[in-house]
Design a protein around this nucleic acid. Structure first.
Lengths: 254, 254
DNA sequence: CGTGTGATTGAAATGCTTCAATTATCGTGG
DNA sequence: CCACGATAATTGAAGCATTTCAATCACACG
């Protein structure tokens, strides 16, 4: 969400590129942490924020229900944002990658849980001073607003995927998203490094881990991918993968 | 998302109330349109905004891909926010009720489609002047930010529901949400007025309309509800309905 | 070289989708 | 006010997709 004047585009055709893709942080470079602040504000926040290093994966950054005192920014690694429903089941809501902001309080509390998925470095800013700075600096605030709007767009995309696609399509959507990101995809070798276990993947895509496994196996049998190791996937046919996402699980309405 | 100082609550227990429910606009009254602006700003915006009346349902307010010049606020009625995937299928992303704000531009374009679900009155504000006003008035901006954060919370709740619940649970979640809203629930008669057709309901809950019908029939056979007319539902056993949502569709992880 | 965790596979049961056909409801014009 | 047509809702039945429980395999780490 860029809060600029209207673009002169009629753009039913352009829409697909504009809609959020999982990792399209490049749409608006201002979104990135490096640019989250103007130069003068950067130094201000540098003094109140610190860098935290998480050496292990599965470290908890914060848990749902805790008092929210800090906002975090990913500098390195991957953070999993999840929430547990009343019966204890977990849903992975989003993955946070370098440049992403998370941990905004909701009525003073964290409503989600944040855990590292790999070793990670996070920039931690106390919320209170940041909040005051935002009130003084509309420019800063509008960038935070842009970030939240970006997250909303991502969340809406997840709703589309969960609401309309079957498990194969959801998985392939995820793989195609990953391919866009150099951290996970070695374009020369056409090799993808999955940042999530089968369990996490299941909780992210709203299905059982066994179904994830079977779906991967099915893609492999069809010759579209190949498992080097459980976490290393060779991409053999991107075009065919894209086609899978276009099929329909449900019939037309009306 | 209230951008106030931390609440002194440890609150694993309090969490469920804090998480967004579909229509809990009462959590923070400041969210409401009447309070979206301070008194001095209200008059300012009143002059640049106008009230639109949509007499018919299924009127299009705007479509995905169009240039976004206006932001809307629901004064009366229900508006359906939806998006079409590449293959043409529609997903209803959210329902907008009186007090809700929608139509924030994304890179100058609307990314979603907004249509009335009933006759409706909308307050329409041109985006450009509003944007300028926001830059001058951090207070106004933080209220818009709060709104977007609220929408994000709602969207995350939809992800939870679509990712973990089966169709019965999704439908019941929706019914229980509606019950909280006086516009749709006559508490004396224990009678619910559904604002959506079976098709819309299917597109909202990520399933086929036939499945919605069967699920309603199942609830009726179980004695939990009764269909007066297709759009009028008598609620016979709220407690049992709540229990349905707690069950599990998928087994535990790890 | 065990031991535990994550990954994989099998098989049965269930839930959901889909196509097709029928019935109900609602708005509109007679 | 009623009949009519269009639209929405409902039901049946067959075929898939997904879940679930259980058992086995692979691999990393001490």
């Amino acid at each position: 969400m860029t809060y600029s004047t209207s673009a002169r585009t009629v753009a039913k055709a352009r829409l697909p590129e504009i809609r959020a893709r999982l990792f399209d942080r490049n749409v608006d470079p201002e979104i990135k942490i490096a640019n989250l602040l103007t130069r003068k504000q950067q130094t201000a926040l540098r003094t109140i924020g610190i860098v935290l290093d998480y050496k292990r994966s599965s470290s908890t950054v914060f848990s749902e229900g805790e008092d929210a005192h800090f906002v975090y920014c990913v500098m390195r690694g991957v953070v999993r944002i999840s929430r547990h429903s009343d019966n204890g089941r977990r849903q992975v809501l989003a993955l946070m990658l370098p440049g992403d902001l998370f941990g905004l309080p909701d009525a003073g509390l964290y409503v989600n849980t944040a855990e590292t998925v790999s070793p990670a470095s996070l920039f931690r800013v106390p919320w209170q001073p940041l909040h005051e700075l935002m009130l003084r600096e509309p420019e800063l605030q509008i960038r935070v607003l842009t970030r939240v709007a970006f997250d909303l767009r991502q969340a809406q995309r997840r709703i589309m995927i969960l609401g309309q696609q079957n498990v194969s399509q959801r998985l392939v959507s995820f793989l195609l998203d990953l391919i866009e990101h150099p951290d996970f995809y070695d374009e020369d070798r056409r090799q993808l490094t999955l940042p999530l276990s089968r369990f996490d993947l299941g909780d992210y895509l709203g299905t059982a881990p066994e179904t994830i496994v079977r779906t991967i196996a099915k893609l492999e049998k069809a010759g579209l991918i190949r498992r080097a190791t459980p976490r290393l996937i060779n991409i053999l046919n991107v075009g065919a993968l894209r086609k899978i996402c276009e099929g329909g699980r449900r019939r037309r309405r009306q």
